[in-house]
Amino acid sequence: MQLIIKNRVQIVVHISIWILLYGLTFYPVLNDARPIPSDVFPKVIVIIILFYINYFYLVPEYLLKKSVLFYILVSLGLLAISVLLINHFYEPKFPDNFFFNRIRPRGFMIMPYYKLFLNLGIPYVISAILRMYVEWKRNENLRLSVEKENIKSELQFLKAQLNPHFLFNSLNTIYALSVKKSPDTSEAIVDLSELMRYMIYEADKDLVPLNKEIDYIKSYIQLQRLRLSDSENVSLKITGEDRGRAVPPLMFISFIENAFKYGTDYKGKTYVKITLTITDTSIYLNVKNKIGIFREPTKNSGIGLENIRNQLKLIYPGLHKLEVENDGKDYEVSLTIYQKHSSL
């Protein structure tokens, strides 16, 4: 379908060019009811032939392949031969102010050849410019398409990394519950199954409803609460309207996951504060946790965090702000996503 549309657009462009080139030329003659000179139509045919030889063959085969000197020599040769042939067979007088106007020379004069060379050369140059623009546009569309595919492939790769990472951490949580023979183990398994369902059926999409992403976060936090011996200082505060808003799936979970991973000390005490603020123009996430003893995050704090950094660069270039603060006691992540009016 797109190919058909492109072909139609090219046809319209070519028709428009010929109308502009010769509509104004023939209008004075037709308007004054003057006879059209006999050599006009042969010249037009020659111009059209030169135009499309240049458009379909010479420009793509030589000019665009950097054989510029050869292209110029061949073009000048074609134009010169065409001028000589036309002047050999046709030497009529032309009305004043006519596009192909020339006066029958007395003896040898250069002006008629010069004017005819311009008459043939101008459409010839236009054909070269038009073909170069078409090729540039085609290459630009191809570049954008490849770039888009590369971004899509990279995002899929990042998500493929994230999912096993998340599953590994969640299974560790359930394992910890089972070791303690906690009655919450079965509930944790149900929570994990819901989380996995979301990851399987939603995470492969470009965008998901924000309310679904929030439900996913709530389920994850609930799963974490089950494994904690002290979850009193775990909080989630959400403000703003999430209806009609959309975000890339799994965008926030790595920040929250790292907060739980490093916000729990060896005694099991956890301090994690999560705030999600939704406005008309942005989504703001703040995650703060105490740095547990012997659990201070390092530069290589996990695949998930670096994964999300890369996704933000790909999806929201210039439209996000990520700040990380670490004073040795508290670790705080603030993420602002400026909405591109993404909605579902």
Rank of each mutant, 00 (worst) to 15 (best):
82 S>I: 06
84 L>K: 04
88 H>A: 03
89 F>Y: 15
89 F>E: 02
89 F>N: 02
90 Y>T: 02
90 Y>P: 04
91 E>S: 12
91 E>R: 11
93 K>R: 09
93 K>H: 09
94 F>C: 01
95 P>A: 02
97 N>C: 03
100 F>H: 02
101 N>D: 10
105 P>H: 10
108 F>A: 07
108 F>M: 06
110 I>Y: 13
111 M>D: 10
112 P>H: 13
113 Y>G: 15
114 Y>P: 00
114 Y>A: 13
114 Y>W: 13
120 L>R: 04
120 L>V: 07
120 L>E: 06
121 G>D: 08
121 G>F: 06
121 G>N: 08
122 I>P: 04
122 I>N: 05
123 P>W: 06
123 P>V: 06
124 Y>Q: 03
125 V>Y: 06
127 S>M: 02
128 A>F: 05
128 A>M: 08
132 M>E: 11
135 E>I: 12
137 K>I: 03
137 K>L: 10
140 E>S: 14
141 N>D: 13
142 L>D: 05
143 R>K: 11
143 R>V: 03
144 L>I: 13
145 S>W: 14
150 N>R: 15
154 E>F: 01
155 L>V: 07
156 Q>K: 12
156 Q>C: 08
158 L>R: 12
158 L>M: 08
158 L>T: 04
160 A>S: 15
161 Q>E: 15
161 Q>N: 15
166 F>H: 03
166 F>I: 07
167 L>Q: 14
168 F>H: 04
168 F>N: 02
170 S>G: 00
172 N>D: 06
172 N>F: 01
173 T>K: 04
174 I>D: 06
178 S>F: 09
178 S>Y: 12
178 S>G: 03
179 V>F: 03
179 V>N: 02
180 K>P: 07
180 K>Y: 10
181 K>T: 12
183 P>M: 04
184 D>F: 11
187 E>T: 08
